[in-house]
Amino acid sequence: MTNWQIFTGNQEPTSDWELPASPSWRPFGEKNQPGESRRKSRGETFQIVDENQIKMVNAALYLRRPLLITGKPGTGKSSIAYKVAYELNLGEVLYWPITTRTTLKDGLYNYDAIGRLQEVKLSEQNPQPLSKQQQKASLKQIEKYITLGPLGTALLPSKKPRILLIDEIDKSDIDLPNDLLTLFEEGYFKIPELVRLKEEVKEVTVGTAYNDETEELTAKDRTATIEEGIVSCKAFPFVILTSNGERDFPAPFLRRCLRLTMKSPNQDELVKIIEKHIDTDICLRDDVIKLIKDFIKKRNKGTLATDQLLNALFLIKEGKIATDDDIIRLINQDLGTVESSDD
C-alpha cells in the first residue's frame, strides 16, 4: 500500500498535496455546475434491483396516490424519487425534509409578515395621498414577501406531474400526516394573505422552491403566477414520503397512500450497486467478497447503511488501504462514530 495520508500530524505546514476525484455518490466541484442540485446525481447512479419497486412507482403514477416508502437507512428510499425524475425527465425534485417542528404551512408557503409591515409603515410616512393606481401597485408588492414551499410548488399547474420528496415523515408532529389528507384529496390550497386582496390584486408573481438553474424543465418555474390567491394542480404531483419505520401512522393517512417496504440489498444486489459506483473487477477479489459477507452479517444485527460499505471500498479501490485495515472497522461501525482518547 502506498502512503496515502494527506494529513500526517507532523506539524509541518505544506501546500504540496492534492485530493483524488470524489466518490460518485459525493459529487462536488467539477462534477456539478454552479446552481445545480447535488442530490440529482442519485438519479443517474441509483440501482433499482427489485421489480416490486418499479411496479409500485407505476401504480402511484397511475392512481395519483402518494407512495409511502419504509425501510432502514441506506436502503435507497429517497433515491427512488431522483431515479424517477431522471428517467421520466420531470425536472428538479422538490425536497421537503421533516422535523418535529414542521407544519403543513411550512411546506405550502412562507409569508414574511415583518418585512411587509415595515414596507407598509414606510409608505404611510409619505405625506402625499396615493392615487388608486399607486394603491394597487403598493398592494401588489406583497408578492415580494411570499415564497412557495416544496409542497406548495408541487401543486402548481403543469402538464406532467411535478415530483416531491417528503423525507422522513415519521419524524413529524403527530398532526402533520392528518393535515396532509385534505390536500392530497383536493389538490389545491389557498393563500389567505392573497385571497383577501383578490379584488384589488387579481394575480401576483411569487418565488417557488425550485433552485436548480440547470434543469431546463423546471428552472423557468423558479417564479410562478398565482391568480386570486389559489394554487391548484392540473396533474397531481408524484409524491414520495420516506419513513424509517420509527412510528405508526393514522389509518386514514395510510389508506390514502400506496405503501412500499424497502428491503436491505442481499449479496448479489450489493455487488450490482458496487459495480455501478466503484468498479466491476473489485467484486471478483476474494478479500472483497469476504468483506461484503461480513458487512451483511453486521448490518443484519445493527444499523449499517450501504454507503458505509461503499466508503470503505472506495478507499480499497484507490489502493489506500487493505480490506483488513483498522479503518474498515471504524467506517463500518454500527453507530458510525469513532471514539478518540486524549493523551
Rank of each mutant, 00 (worst) to 15 (best):
W4P: 08
N10A: 14
E12T: 06
P13H: 03
W17R: 11
L19N: 13
F28P: 06
G29N: 10
N32R: 08
G43Q: 02
F46Q: 10
E51V: 07
I54E: 14
N58M: 14
Y62H: 03
R64G: 13
L67P: 09
I69E: 01
K72V: 02
G74D: 01
G76V: 01
A81F: 01
L88I: 10
L90A: 08
E92C: 04
W96H: 15
T100H: 15
R101E: 12
A113H: 11
I114K: 04
L117Q: 12
N126T: 11
Q134C: 04
Q135N: 02
Q141G: 13
I142D: 03
K144N: 14
I146H: 04
G149S: 09
I163P: 04
D167G: 08
D167P: 11
K171I: 03
D175F: 10
L180D: 04
L181W: 12
L197I: 12
L197R: 10
K198I: 11
E199H: 08
T205P: 12
T208Y: 14
T218Y: 07
R222E: 03
A224H: 05
T225Q: 12
E227Q: 13
A235G: 07
L241S: 10
L241C: 14
S243A: 05
E246C: 00
P250L: 12
A251H: 13
P252L: 09
L254V: 11
R255S: 07
R256A: 06
R259M: 15
K263I: 07
K263S: 15
P265F: 02
Q267I: 02
D268Q: 06
V271R: 05
K272Q: 06
I274G: 07
H277L: 12
D281K: 15
C283I: 05
V288S: 02
I296H: 00
L310V: 00
N311E: 02
A312M: 04
A312Q: 00
G319A: 00
I331T: 03
D334E: 05
D342Y: 05
D342P: 01
D343T: 15
